[in-house]
Simulated assay, not measured.
Amino acid sequence: MTNDSAVCGNDESSAQEHPEHVARLLIKHRSSLLAFIFAVMRDFDAAEDTLQDVSVAIWENADTFELGSNFGAWARSIARRRIAAYWRTRSRSGQTLSDEQIDQLVDGFEQLQSANEPEPRKRALVECLGHLSPLLTRLIHLRYSKQLSLADVAESVGQPTETIRKALYRGRTALRECIERKLALNAEAGSVS
């Protein structure tokens, strides 16, 4: 289950940021939401129209979404209601899916989404990398993704090798602490639910 984690306080700025955060999540999940709708509706034009309706409903109900919970599942529950309405109108023309068939498609899609979700530690790593300075992110990318030696990284950025070694040590320490904090927060949130 994906937790789209964010802290939502009770202050005025948090209340103003909540719809913006939901809008960012909608953009992030748009393609998987369209894939879900299309899988059930089997008509691309109708799926796009339904996605627009679902997007409006998500925006109108943004204040009901609990930040830190599974946005994809919440959005799909809204989409499911819109899809059911679509199939009710289609039933008049003889084309229909039963509620049971729609539920089976929804369950299958949920299982597929769960199987493709990154592990909590990897999600935390990606989030924590976003908190590092651009230079430190670049150093980590060169050293660990590109697998360059310390000397090659130092040459690439025009810094002494010892400076790069110390910066990478600080970066790894910051990442480890950030990941541990995020995992602990997620564990606390899971035990509260």
Rank of each mutant, 00 (worst) to 15 (best):
A6P: 03
S13D: 10
R76S: 01
L33G: 02
R170L: 13
S55A: 15
N70E: 03
V7E: 11
C128N: 01
D99P: 02
E127V: 12
R30G: 05
E66G: 12
T137G: 14
L142S: 02
I102S: 00
T89P: 02
A151P: 02
E48W: 07
E127A: 15
R165P: 03
V192F: 13
A15Y: 05
M41D: 05
L112K: 15
L142C: 02
K166M: 13
T161F: 04
P134H: 14
H141L: 04
I83T: 01
T2P: 07
T163Q: 07
E100V: 08
S91L: 03
A46Q: 13
H21R: 15
V157D: 08
S145T: 15
A151G: 05
L132Q: 09
D103Q: 12
S69F: 04
D43S: 13
R82Q: 08
G171D: 00
I27A: 14
Q147A: 10
L185M: 11
Q104M: 09
E119R: 14
L168G: 07
E117S: 06
F71M: 06
W59L: 08
E110F: 07
V56I: 11
S32I: 13
S77T: 14
Y86H: 11
I140P: 00
E17T: 09
T161I: 14
L142W: 06
A6I: 06
Q147L: 02
L142Y: 06
A124L: 05
S31I: 10
R24P: 00
S98H: 09
S133N: 10
A39S: 11
F109L: 06
G94E: 00
T163E: 04
